[in-house]
Computed example of a mutant assay.
Amino acid sequence: MKTVLILYYSRHGSVAKMAQQLARGVESVPDSVAILRTVPEVSEICEAVADSIPDNGAPYVTLDELKACDALALGSPGRFGNMAAPLKHFLEKTSSLWLSGSLVGKPAGVFTSTSSLHGGQESTLLSMMLPLLHHGMLITGLPYAEADLISTQSGGTPYGPSHVAGSDNSRPLTDEERRLCSALGKRLAQLAHKL
């Protein structure tokens, strides 16, 4: 059994919905399981007083879960062309995994959601790839063999799936966006088995 960790931060729910679609893609591959995890908010309040379990949604990720996964999908809303602070904050605490080489050679992909079509989707995806490259992970995107990359009028990039949520974050995932999320999940599971 190969596990694909789908690790994300979602403020308004769009990235969480994308993560669920990725999980469907992962679990369409025999002997593959998706594990959905999130990260806590970052605030100016001491982390020691924050709840250790979220009120709803996926549980918080642990370093052990990241170390044990066979593949990783990393998702974040775009924040000025970068990943959101809570995800970056978590990644900055993975030095022990970097020192031990725990993630070297594992496949990884990224996904994002922004309010507007030109909200920095591709730069956000690229920003999420950088720490994964430092960990020695094998980055995969979406090939143009995925016909939805050509026909989409909303989100979708070869760097990874994306979603246009709208200024009020109420736009549902389009059919193309859902299929592209599923395609990345399936691709990561297949790569985990091949590697």
Rank of each mutant, 00 (worst) to 15 (best):
K2R: 14
K2D: 12
V4L: 07
L5R: 07
L5M: 07
L7R: 11
R11K: 12
H12Q: 13
S14N: 14
S14L: 05
S14H: 13
A16D: 12
A19T: 07
A19G: 09
Q20H: 12
Q21H: 12
Q21G: 01
A23M: 03
V26I: 09
E27T: 10
E27M: 08
E27G: 06
S28T: 10
V29A: 09
D31A: 15
V33S: 15
A34E: 09
L36V: 08
V39G: 02
P40G: 08
E41R: 14
I45R: 14
C46D: 15
C46F: 13
E47A: 13
A48G: 15
A48T: 15
V49Y: 15
D51V: 09
S52W: 00
I53V: 15
P54L: 09
P54E: 07
P54C: 06
N56T: 14
A58F: 08
A58N: 07
P59T: 10
P59Y: 12
Y60H: 10
T62Q: 03
L63Q: 11
L63D: 13
D64A: 13
D64M: 01
D64C: 01
K67P: 01
K67L: 02
A71D: 11
L72K: 10
L74D: 10
G75Y: 03
G75A: 12
P77N: 00
G78Q: 04
G78L: 01
G81P: 06
G81V: 13
G81K: 02
N82W: 04
K88D: 10
H89S: 12
L91I: 10
E92H: 06
L97Q: 07
V104N: 11
K106N: 10
A108M: 12
G109C: 09
V110T: 14
V110Y: 05
V110D: 03
F111R: 07
T112M: 00
S116C: 06
E122S: 11
T124A: 00
T124N: 01
T124E: 04
L125D: 03
S127T: 14
M128A: 01
M129E: 13
M129F: 01
M129N: 04
L130I: 14
P131G: 05
P131E: 05
L133F: 06
H135F: 11
H135G: 01
H135T: 04
M137D: 08
G141D: 03
G141E: 05
L142W: 03
L142C: 02
P143M: 04
A145E: 10
E146R: 01
A147K: 13
D148L: 01
D148Q: 13
D148W: 01
S151V: 12
T152P: 08
G155R: 00
G156P: 09
G156D: 08
A165V: 02
A165G: 02
G166W: 05
S167K: 10
D168R: 07
N169K: 11
S170L: 08
S170H: 04
S170C: 04
S170Q: 14
R171P: 00
R171G: 00
L173K: 06
E176V: 06
C181I: 01
A183H: 07
A183V: 07
A183I: 05
G185M: 03
K186H: 11
R187G: 11
A189H: 04
Q190H: 11
Q190R: 14
A192H: 04
A192Q: 08
K194E: 14
K194M: 10
